[in-house]
């Protein structure tokens, strides 16, 4: 079974080795040095790590609700009897397939302080410019907006699948009772597609926790580390400073945290249903 070999080499071994590494100090070149719990103690006192964790949570807190609202709205629109539905669906989906690097380079221009499209629109209607990527309190929300634009197409498709499972006669009955569009949406659609919403929450939590390339290209983690995401920090510790042991500790801790968050979400969902 070649699978077993591959499994042990690339999954089982790394997991075990990563746990071993967390008790050591190692820069790859010099031999490993046993340091006991030093990495863990360092982790708990590492302000940068907690900052990066906080940043990642800020990202999720903006990204997930925004994504669900926009995706659900556009899916609802596309679910009407409209012409060229295939074209619109394909248009919304385009950013999903394009590399994050391209999207980031593109949005860097939109967010530009003096020449960026957004600030030009703002100044033309009389507002003052916003430092989308230069103001520490705006930088992470800016990245969250961009990520929503990039991923929303996928979630539109998932919601469309969900919407099509709602039986048509529910709507017909509601229409007979004189329900308007809003009432139908909140009283029929929303409760019926609850499972899809939960699925989208879990999927975007997992993908949101791996936020890396966007801040790496766009801001390098700045300004004032306001966009330093957890994966970016792990990458920097490992491959800028060559703190392999510490980087592995961060990775392990962060991975367990992700598993815990997703497990809690799943528990919560099971309870709801």
């Amino acid at each position: 079974m070649p699978y077993m070999l591959h499994f042990f080499l690339f999954i089982a071994f790394p997991v075990v080795f990563s746990i071993v590494l967390t008790f050591h100090k190692w820069n790859i070149i010099a031999p490993m040095q046993y340091t006991g719990l030093a990495n863990y103690i360092h982790l708990f006192n590492d302000a940068f790590f907690w900052k990066s964790l906080g940043n990642t949570l800020i990202f999720l807190a903006i990204h997930i609700p925004l994504q669900i609202i926009v995706a659900l709205f556009l899916a609802e629109v596309l679910n009407q009897k409209i012409k060229f539905r295939g074209f619109f669906r394909a248009a919304f989906f385009l950013p999903v397939i394009v590399s994050g690097v391209v999207v980031t380079i593109l949005w860097q221009q939109l967010y530009g302080f003096d020449t960026g499209l957004f600030n030009r629109i703002l100044t033309s209607v009389g507002f003052s410019k916003i430092g989308w990527l230069t103001d520490p309190s705006w930088a992470m929300p800016s990245i969250a907006i961009m990520a929503t634009w990039k991923n929303v197409g996928l979630y539109i498709i998932l919601f469309l699948v969900g919407l099509q499972t709602v039986p048509a006669h529910y709507y017909e009955a509601a229409e007979l009772e004189g329900a308007n569009h809003m009432q139908k949406f909140f009283n029929i659609t929303l409760p019926m597609i609850n499972p899809t919403i939960f699925m989208v929450v879990i999927l975007s939590t997992i993908s949101g926790f791996s936020l890396f390339i966007e801040p790496y290209v766009m801001t390098g983690g700045g300004p004032l580390n306001s966009t330093l995401s957890a994966v970016l920090y792990i990458y920097k510790q490992g491959f800028f400073y060559y703190h392999m042991g510490y980087s592995a500790t961060l990775g392990l801790f962060f991975a367990l945290l992700i598993l815990a968050v997703v497990a809690i979400q799943k528990k919560f969902i099971e309870k709801e249903q």
């Binding site: 999954i11 990563s18 592995a248």
Partner: peptide
Amino acid sequence: MIIFTMTLPFQITLIPQYIL
């Protein structure tokens, strides 16, 4: 076991895989 590996976040194996 295969299902289990799907739930593992990649952050956990990143450094050890590099060392490999």
